[in-house]
């Protein structure tokens, strides 16, 4: 077993993964993945498409259970607690997720952000409107939408929709935020805004981001993991991965020789 736990020390790991194997029916998609996700840092997962990085991300809040015949084996710990046997709704409240394609609900902007709060309940004594406002501010969207809170979320631009989805995820105050290629459908300006946002969020949140864009990983991430054909080939501090990769495959990938 290759130990890949070096960068994030056990003591500071928010999520600890050990020996994760993943299957879609008879087909194995992940092989013996072990790593630790550092608390209040940004961890980026890179690799060619189909390498299993999104699958891995989805097991972290058990979204893989939506896929028929999908099966994960291994140990996944969130603050030392077993993810697989945790109450799934509580898990997803603690570990939020933002998807590749923005998916606002066909409701108003306000109702979109309030959704998670309504579902999970929210602290008494603070009006819902305050919580919604706070989330929109954290997602740096407040100034753009404060006058149109009760308009349909579909009226927003693509980048705004994606930030709305981030605000929606932030509303329930998750400890970990998973982002699955959140910028793949956005233009460079909207992408830059989201990257800025991630930097700001690092103060309060542990972030895991899957990206096919290596520059993005190099810009935002503290740690980077490189996936290839279902295996975690390399995992280290971002600057190490990008400047002194230990594995030949990693070097080939980041220098653009394949993938």
């Amino acid at each position: 077993m290759v130990s890949q736990e070096t960068p994030a020390k056990r003591s500071t790991a928010k999520i600890q993964v050990r020996g994760l194997n993943f299957y879609y029916g008879p087909r194995q998609a992940l092989y013996d993945i072990s790593l630790g996700i550092a608390e209040k840092k940004i961890t980026a997962l890179i690799g060619p498409s189909g390498c299993g990085k999104s699958t891995f991300l989805r097991t972290l809040n058990r979204m893989h259970e939506l896929v028929r015949q999908a099966r994960a084996e291994g140990q996944l710990l969130l603050d030392g607690e077993d993810i697989m046997s945790m109450d799934v709704t509580r898990l997803r409240r603690r570990v939020g997720m933002v998807f590749q394609k923005s998916n606002p609900f066909p409701k108003t902007i306000f109702e979109n952000v309030a959704y998670g709060l309504r579902v999970n309940g929210y602290p008494k004594g603070r009006p819902l409107a305050d919580l919604v406002e706070a989330s929109l501010k954290r997602a740096a969207l407040w100034d753009e939408v404060k006058d149109s809170l009760h308009k349909s979320a579909y009226a927003l631009s693509g980048g705004q929709q994606q930030r709305l989805c981030i605000a929606r995820a932030l509303a329930v105050n998750p400890e970990v935020l998973l982002l699955d290629e959140p910028c793949s459908a956005l233009d460079p300006i909207a992408t830059a805004k989201i990257e800025e946002l991630l930097f700001a969020l690092r103060e309060s949140c542990t972030i895991v981001i899957v990206t096919h864009n290596m520059q993005q990983a190099a810009r935002v991430a503290d740690y980077t993991g490189f996936f290839l054909m279902g295996r975690l080939v390399e995992f280290d501090e971002t600057k190490v991965v990008f400047t002194r990769p230990r594995r030949r495959e990693t070097e080939d990938y980041i220098t653009g020789r394949f993938g």
Partner: peptide, 17 residues
């Protein structure tokens, strides 16, 4: 030990789920 724990978690997990 790890494997035993996994098995236990698997069965108990299903009931709990």
């Amino acid at each position: 030990l790890v494997i035993d724990q996994l098995h236990a978690a698997g069965r108990g997990g299903r009931v709990r789920a």
